Simulated scan of single mutants.
Amino acid sequence: MSRMCRVGGMNTPLISLKNMSIRIDGRTILEHVNAAVSEAEIVTIVGPNGSGKSTLLRAIIGAITPSEGQVSRAPGLRIGYVPQKLALDAAFPMTVQRFLGLPKRISARKALDALERAGVPDLRNRQMTQLSGGQFQRVLLARALLDDPQVLLLDEATQGLDQPGAAAFYQRIEQVRRDLGCAIVMVSHDLHVVMAASDRVLCLNGHICCEGSPHTVADAPEYRALFGSGTKGMMALYQHQHSHSHDHDHHHDQETTN
């Protein structure tokens, strides 16, 4: 059972999905999804392409209205969101500071605080178009952290990064969770990385196939049917690597490219 936090004097999850179904253009994307996100936990959503992972996140932030059921959020809940990708016009000059201040300008101090949390304090005056893939994702993370979110959503935020860059990014996410005490909800294909970093895993394929701790899900027949039994060994390999010291976690990340 996931931990519960106190909001408004009542024990309640930060986010609750109750019997939620989503249909788009007559096609069922998600059906009868029941899930909750509680304070400070890291929840990973895995599933094959077309399984409804991004749709689930869009429902959580309110960009999609469920066809059935409901999405409940704690009153005044602050949500940070790191998208799967973001296209910027290469001909349009924009510093990182200016990007973080859209649509409303922010102080240099606030921008620097967010970049420090994301692990890239030296990027504030760099041009967005000059950033590597890993640096760009860190800046998107900094933007999501500007308002001290209680829940941080990441939609395949390491897409295009190599394995060391992805691992460094997720280690930074763990640090953010420790610093802010926020819940993390991640969608990813990096099974061997995110599974090891998670408190709880939801395996999705139009509905929740299985749910639980990373090792519980990795042993579930539903999970193995989707991803194969070899992923459990990949997860164990990452956990062994993760036990080592990573004092320069953003060094790998800054060198990765799309």
Rank of each mutant, 00 (worst) to 15 (best):
Y170I: 03
A236C: 08
A183W: 06
G233I: 05
E174D: 15
E222A: 14
D122K: 12
D199F: 03
A157P: 00
G212S: 04
A108P: 00
N205D: 14
N205P: 00
L146H: 05
Q130C: 05
A144K: 01
L153V: 01
Q130G: 13
A166T: 12
D122A: 15
D162N: 15
F136S: 14
G160E: 06
G134M: 02
A183F: 09
D162Q: 09
D162H: 10
E156G: 02
N125M: 08
R138G: 03
K110G: 14
V201M: 02
L204G: 13
A108G: 13
E211I: 01
L226G: 10
H189L: 00
A197K: 12
R224N: 14
Q130F: 04
R117Q: 14
G228Y: 10
L153F: 07
V176C: 05
V217Y: 10
D147F: 11
A157C: 07
M128W: 06
G165N: 13
H207Q: 14
Q135R: 02
V193R: 02
R109M: 13
P149I: 06
C210V: 00
V187G: 02
V176R: 00
D179F: 03
M128S: 03
G160A: 10
N125E: 15
R172E: 12
A114D: 04
L141K: 07
L154Y: 04
Y223V: 00
V217W: 11
V151P: 00
L153R: 05
E174H: 12
D179I: 07
P164H: 10
C210F: 05
A108R: 15
L204I: 04
L226H: 05
C182N: 13
F136G: 07
D155F: 02
I208L: 11
D199I: 01
Q127I: 03
R109D: 15
Q130A: 14
D147Y: 13
A236V: 12
P164S: 11
V201W: 07
R124L: 15
G133A: 06
L161F: 11
G233Y: 09
V139Q: 05
C209D: 14
R117N: 11
L152Q: 10
P214A: 11
R138N: 13
D190H: 11
R178S: 13
M235T: 12
A144I: 02
P149E: 12
A142V: 05
Q163N: 10
A196M: 08
A167S: 08
Q127R: 06
M128I: 13
L154T: 06
A197M: 15
G119C: 07
H215Y: 14
V217C: 01
L140P: 02
D190F: 05
L131S: 04
A236Q: 15
L161S: 08
L154N: 02
M195G: 06
H215P: 00
G133Q: 00
L131D: 06
A144M: 05
T216G: 14
P164Y: 12
M128V: 10
A236E: 15
C210L: 01
M234C: 09
P221E: 09
N125W: 06
D199A: 07
R224E: 10
N125Y: 12
A166H: 07
D162P: 01
A168Q: 09
H207W: 08
F227Q: 04
A183M: 01
C182R: 02
Q175G: 09
S198C: 03
A218M: 12
A111T: 04
A114Q: 01
A225E: 14
L191C: 08
R124Y: 08
E174Y: 08
C210N: 08
D148Y: 10
